[in-house]
């Protein structure tokens, strides 16, 4: 069965929830970049809002947009990915525990620190009693969720699924990563330092082609380590009887730092007919940032227009390739529908 992306939603470092033309967007700054928070009051009852972690709020907001676009009230499944979950609350509970010598601790931040709290609270708010999974595998957390949903819709087990990736900036953890020279500071750029972001990107996968459909998800794959980028891409595309030169647009998760290694340039070399598009200069790096790249790819296919220049282009296939520091590689193939 074919699987389509019929709704998108996002909360990111950008104003508004859509990110079609790069000219309208602001590049992230050096260091840490907080997501622009929409107003949640109309969407979430005050009684629930008061205890919600930032990640939960962003997730509910982005998933609401995606479901609304897809015209679905309650999805068959909620499948999320997150690198570190609701990190702010995890830090809060941890610090309180260490500072107060395990005394006077309250449950709210502990509950929010549970990795599946975003998926659980989306289900709670939607009263969705279906399948509910959360993947927490660093830079392939989102793709794991995508693959799970794709397989179930392809197999006819689900008609649709709400999927998403969400991550928060936790001040202390990010500060430590700056000390370890993995994230840039406002003063200093490190060899392997990235500019960090946060956000939530949600999508509705469905077995129906509708007027709203953005793209067909053909396939996705993840691998912890790979021996050769060309072989990885060729093998992946061969499963669909495609070759790399049939890819018109290659979206890469490049940070333009030493973390990129030669991975993306090798991908670019083998997909020799592709226009190369990047997105992390607008989303920042985070564990589920690749979902933001996939969202851009969806819009490029639907509007047959390049993200970087706004130029019209006939696009049949887009390949999204992401990795981080040589680990957690993922490929996602989208097709025009």
């Amino acid at each position: 069965m074919k699987v389509y992306i019929n709704g998108l939603g996002s909360v990111s470092c950008q104003e508004g929830t859509r990110n079609f033309k790069s000219a309208d967007l602001t590049k992230v700054s050096q260091g840490l970049n907080q997501a622009t928070q929409p107003s949640y009051k109309d969407l979430i009852p005050a009684g629930m809002l008061r205890r919600m972690a930032k990640g939960v709020k962003m997730g509910i907001y982005a998933s609401h947009s995606a479901l609304e676009e897809a015209n679905i009230t309650v999805p068959d499944a909620v499948i999320t990915g997150t690198g570190l979950g609701c990190l702010i609350d995890s830090e809060k509970f941890l610090c309180a525990m260490l500072e107060n010598n395990e005394s006077y601790l309250t449950p709210t931040s502990f509950i929010q620190s549970t990795h599946n709290t975003v998926g659980g609270q989306i289900a709670l708010q939607l009263q969705c009693m279906g399948y509910n999974f959360t993947y927490v595998h660093q830079n392939t957390s989102f793709e794991s969720a995508l693959l799970d949903a794709l397989l179930q819709v392809q197999a006819g087990e689900l008609d649709n699924a709400l999927i998403g990736g969400v991550d928060e900036i936790g001040d202390m953890t990010m500060h430590f990563l700056q000390l370890a020279k993995k994230i840039n500071t406002t003063d200093e750029v490190f060899t392997k330092g990235v500019n960090y972001g946060e956000g939530a990107t949600f999508m509705v996968l469905e077995n129906r082609l509708t007027a709203q459909s953005y793209a067909e998800v053909v396939d996705t794959d993840i691998s912890n380590r790979i021996d050769s980028v060309p072989d990885y891409i060729k093998t992946f595309l061969a499963r669909q009887s495609l070759t790399p030169n049939q890819i018109e647009v290659l979206v890469v998760g490049s940070n333009q730092t030493a973390n990129d290694g030669t991975y993306y340039s090798e991908a670019q070399n083998i997909c020799s007919n592709s226009v190369v598009e990047t997105f992390k200069e607008f989303s920042g790096e985070y564990h589920t940032a690749s979902a933001f790249g996939l969202l851009n790819a969806c819009e490029m296919l639907k509007y047959q227009q390049l993200f970087s220049t706004g130029e019209s282009k006939s696009i049949e296939y887009i390949l999204v390739y992401n990795q981080f520091d040589g680990k957690d590689h993922s490929l996602t193939l989208l097709k025009k529908c």
Binding site: R51, Y104, L105, T106, P107, T108, I111
Partner: peptide, 11 residues
């Protein structure tokens, strides 16, 4: 959950 928070407040 609020009840648990109030228990901590009392303590």
């Amino acid at each position: 959950i609020d009840a648990l928070e109030l228990i901590v407040l009392m303590d």
